[in-house]
């Protein structure tokens, strides 16, 4: 039983109903990075999806964005207890991406430039639930926020929204990614506080 410190956290009462439990609203955008920030030029950027038959579907910068850029406004929730509400983004829905992918596997491992990985079930990436984003707050994504492109899965804690995303690998069984292997929840639902495994 932890000791409660008088008056700490009381400013969070009168909460916005869009805030999941244990989250505090912020207006800025904290930078959370587990290493040096990779710099990836648009000219060399590519996005790939690898499937069980050994095939890799591959796009370059222009062909990927030609799949269809759209604006979307979502709330994002970081496991470190901050949330940003009503954040404007621009990117390509993963529904557009998976129109070009044949797979029977149900799980996805996202891979990033720099080697980070995170796992997400495929059904949680489809039906307008996830994007590859190129812009946030009306500006191109800065490298420190995952630019030039990051995964955005706003209904899961934000560590699932891999920065500097390079591609998706279809996998048969759910497997832990970098943080999931180190004690974070395999799934990461902010509304049920799936922070740790």
């Amino acid at each position: 039983m932890a000791l409660i410190t008088r008056g700490f956290g009381s400013k969070t009462h009168g909460r916005d109903t869009r805030l999941p439990p244990g989250q505090t609203q912020v207006d800025d955008w904290p930078v959370l990075t587990a290493g040096a920030t990779p710099e990836i030029a648009q000219e060399i950027w590519e996005f790939t999806v690898g499937t069980e038959d050994g095939k890799t579907v591959r796009w370059d910068w222009d062909s990927f964005r030609a799949l269809g850029l759209e604006d979307f406004t979502v709330d994002i929730h970081c496991v470190t207890h901050w949330s940003r509400l009503g954040m404007p983004w621009r990117g390509v829905s993963l529904d557009r991406v998976f129109e070009h992918v044949e797979t029977s596997y149900d799980f996805v491992m996202a891979h990033s430039y720099g080697g980070y990985t995170t796992n997400v079930p495929l059904e949680e990436l489809l039906d307008g639930q996830a994007w590859i984003a190129f812009e946030a707050d009306g500006e191109p994504l800065e490298a420190e926020h995952g630019g030039p492109a990051r995964l955005v899965v706003p209904h899961l804690y934000f560590w699932k929204s891999a920065k500097w995303v390079q591609g998706l690998e279809m996998i048969a069984q759910d497997e832990p990614g970098f943080w999931e292997e180190r004690g974070y929840s395999l799934h990461g639902d902010p509304w049920t506080e799936e922070r740790y495994s």
Binding site: G35, A36, W179, R182, G183, Y184, R195, Y196, S197
Partner: peptide
């Protein structure tokens, strides 16, 4: 710049 170690303080556990 290689990863040496990671630590997660997860609730009552330290991993």
């Amino acid at each position: 710049d290689s990863v040496l170690l990671t630590i997660v303080e997860a609730g009552d556990d330290v991993r």
